[in-house]
Design a protein around this nucleic acid. Structure first.
Lengths: 140, 140
DNA sequence: ATGAAAGGTCCAGCCGTAGAACTATCCAGC
DNA sequence: GCTGGATAGTTCTACGGCTGGACCTTTCAT
């Protein structure tokens, strides 16, 4: 992320820089309990779902290719947080389910994430939060 | 305490999402001339410097670890954009210099980047640009 | 002369992308 | 009923970007 100094673009560069710092904070909150953003993203999607998701569904929710999910689930399974389960109704399908340890970590992760996010958001006065949102909405 | 996500955190998530989309736009402008953000960052730092930078200096300017620079310079050297040059005054030191092709690409990259950035920044009315900056400055 | 500090590289690991080939399975239509 | 196309998941190759620690050489102060 190069910082090029042109007046009109400064706001954009500041936006990117701020977003990176915010992400770094959130990431480090998760690191403290042994999760990366990517892993937490998977666990969170699984917790939010009403039933065990197939790997293709996970790829869809995380907007990434399936082979990426294969590898992520490999790692989460090695960590003991997730388990692959065959679907009896369609033998092509594999569903990912949280282990008890996975559920625990996902819950801790969600709490740590929400707290870090809250602390950061609290630095923004109410009014600025709104104007920030309207400004961002223009950038699509 | 699994609190339901406060609306206050939404602004942060929107911030991160917007920054990612902006970065994707800038990145694709650079891709058109064969550069990635990371590579352009290196070339730009080199152009801005008054004399050839050592690899450690580059790592400092780009805020990354030295081994990352080693690999980045490996790729840029393979692309023919950069060359490693020994420093006669200190045989530990290696300086990176732009080749003529590297200078050309860096210039093209800077133009493409500035244009893409300008187009995006133009979507923000003057006033919102300012309020965006003040909001972002609070997040540090 | 020696040992700490600094410069750069190497290696292992994480995370992500794309595309292609491959197996197994399912299902619709003939 | 069989068959052929679609779907699910894995595997492989190859790439690009990042981190951290181990490692070697060189420099420099003591």
């Amino acid at each position: 992320m190069p910082e090029t100094p042109l007046p009109s673009g400064d706001a954009l560069m500041a936006l990117i820089g701020a977003a990176h710092r915010v992400e770094a904070q959130l990431e480090s909150a998760l690191n403290a309990i042994g999760l990366s953003m990517a892993k937490f993203g998977v666990l969170e999607a699984m917790m939010r779902a009403s039933e065990p998701l197939t790997l293709t569904e996970l790829a869809g929710k995380l907007s990434c290719v399936r082979s990426n999910i294969t590898q992520l689930i490999d790692r989460l399974e090695a960590d003991g947080l997730v388990q692959r389960v065959a679907d009896p109704s369609d033998r092509r399908i594999i569903r990912a389910v949280l282990t008890p340890l996975g559920t625990e970590r996902a819950t801790q992760g969600a709490a740590a994430f929400a707290q870090a996010r809250g602390e950061l958001a609290d630095r923004l006065p109410e009014g600025e939060r709104a104007s920030l949102l309207t400004a961002l909405s223009r950038l699509v």
